[in-house]
């Protein structure tokens, strides 16, 4: 018997493996088909249905949705209280994003550059653990912390700083009867809840800045401050932008936090919730939903234009 140059495939599984090995495109197609169908039908499809709704309008007298194309619903977005809702939400989202970035950066920087071994494990644990518990529970916990009878008031009084807290609450716009009924409180809870989404991408971006870039910068005469501004920060920017996409869009769409902690003025999420529920105004709810999408699209376009993704 002569030795064969090639072995026979081993069973049906072997034959299938051989087919996939020689035709990798076939394997890719098979692997991608289910998720593509899901995204296409369930995800993009429903988004498209939503978009369609926003071009309908609600008949004021009968409360019935008129299935005719119109831009009337969109024009309602620019009316008094609706514009206020949009501006309020966008301002809040922007402030939450900036504050998250400022708080997250030093933490991410430490974790990426200095933390090793168990310190690194502790970092991941500390950042991720809040994500393991219920979002609702955390928000209610914050309501208690921020309440007039809560820990913060108690602590401020114990330190004889009650006057400071009262002073802050007396500030126009951001203040209120107590922290849990103020924009400041809403802001604090937003920052707390979304912070991990800012820390992790920032840390990942910093992690990818090799030490020898920093050494090269120092070698070329840059002091640590200059190195930070010209090398580390620009290279971390894609991570910060990625994080800001999370914090910004999550704040834009959230309707639970402002409902539990904050004054009674609506955010976009709450407006959508109310409009599609009790008011039954699906077209306006849909139009409101389109607002964050447009804002995010614009934001990403700006970020790209400013070169935030050049080093990706």
């Amino acid at each position: 018997m002569t030795a064969m140059a090639a072995e026979k495939p081993r069973g049906i599984a072997g034959t299938i493996s051989d087919v996939f090995f020689t035709r990798p495109q076939l394997l890719t197609l098979l692997l991608l088909l289910p998720p593509l169908l899901w995204i296409g039908v369930v995800y993009v499809g429903s988004l498209f249905a939503l978009l369609l709704q926003s071009f309908y309008s609600l008949d004021d007298f009968s409360g019935v949705v008129v299935h005719e194309f119109t831009l009337a619903t969109y024009s309602q977005l620019f009316e008094g209280s609706n514009v206020q809702i949009i501006l309020r939400t966008v301002t809040m989202a922007a402030l939450v994003t900036v504050a998250s970035a400022i708080i997250a950066f030093p933490i991410a920087y430490y974790a990426a550059r200095y933390a090793r071994g168990w310190m690194k494990a502790l970092f991941y644990l500390a950042v991720m653990m809040p994500l393991w518990s219920s979002y609702l529970v955390k928000v209610y916990a914050w309501k208690l912390i921020l309440a007039k009878e809560g820990v913060i008031t108690w602590f401020a009084n114990a330190l004889h700083l009650g006057w400071l807290l009262d002073g802050i609450l007396a500030l126009p716009i951001i203040g209120g009867p107590s922290l849990s009924f103020s924009y400041l409180g809403t802001f604090l809870v937003f920052v707390y809840i979304w912070l991990p989404y800012m820390i992790l991408p920032t840390q990942a971006a910093l992690e990818r800045v090799p030490t020898n870039f920093i050494e090269a910068s120092a070698d070329l005469g840059a002091d640590p401050g200059q190195t930070f501004r010209t090398v580390i920060f620009p290279l971390a920017l894609p991570g910060i932008v990625a994080g800001s996409i999370f914090t910004f869009s999550l704040t834009l769409g959230d309707y639970i936090i402002p409902q539990i902690v904050g004054n009674s003025r609506l955010m976009i999420g709450q407006a959508v919730y109310t409009l599609q529920g009790t008011a039954g105004n699906i077209p306006l709810a849909a139009a409101f939903t389109v607002v964050p999408m447009v804002i995010m699209g614009f934001y990403l376009w700006m970020a790209k234009r400013m070169g935030a993704f050049d080093v990706l």
């Binding site: 090799p210 020898n212 120092a218 070329l220 002091d223 050049d310």
Partner: peptide, 28 residues
């Protein structure tokens, strides 16, 4: 510190800054 020494280094893996052009790297 390195940034106050009048010596310069060519690094083993070159350490060119990826967010700058060739010209910006050289002029850094």
């Amino acid at each position: 510190p390195p940034y106050r020494r009048n010596v310069n280094t060519v690094f083993q893996d070159y350490a060119l800054f990826p967010h700058m052009t060739v010209g910006e790297n050289v002029a850094y």
